[in-house]
């Protein structure tokens, strides 16, 4: 079975998260620049005079598809790298993925998700 991890993180934490994931062998990912609001509820910005409130703040959404047994380790890694302890740190969603197709080769499922040096190869080598 495969899952999709969708992590909504602070813009400035993207590099930390990416580096931490690379260390555990998660290399494939894509990101969205998004805007969102959660418990933090936006921020006050300075206007021409006085202030105004902006509710939807820029965030980064990191998308990773991977095998079930790697989910927990990956989620922990993201959490550690993205956490500041303040409101606005973000949220992680996990979804089931029906199938994956690698366009170049036509491989499907887990086969389509593996590549040299990935998290499974590293675990097997340990």
């Amino acid at each position: 079975m495969t899952k999709k991890i969708e992590a909504i993180i602070r813009e400035e934490k993207l590099n930390d998260v990416k580096n931490a994931l690379r260390e555990i062998g998660i290399l494939g990912m894509n990101i969205h620049e998004i805007r969102g609001q959660g418990r933090q509820g936006g921020v006050e910005l300075t206007g021409r005079t006085g202030t105004y409130r902006v509710d939807l703040l820029p965030k980064i959404q990191v998308n990773i598809v991977l095998s079930d047994h790697n989910v927990e380790k990956t989620v922990e890694t993201i959490r550690e790298a993205a956490q500041t302890g303040n409101t606005g740190d973000g949220v992680i969603f996990i979804y089931p993925v029906d199938d994956t197709i690698r366009i170049r080769t036509g491989e499907r499922g887990r086969k389509a998700l593996t590549y040299p040096g990935d998290i499974d190869e590293r675990r097997a080598g340990q």
Partner: peptide, 16 residues
């Protein structure tokens, strides 16, 4: 200074 007193010294305010 007026902008600073209300919040932070806004650049939009300064150029205005």
């Amino acid at each position: 200074l007026l902008s600073w007193r209300d919040n932070k010294p806004s650049v939009l305010g300064i150029v205005t």
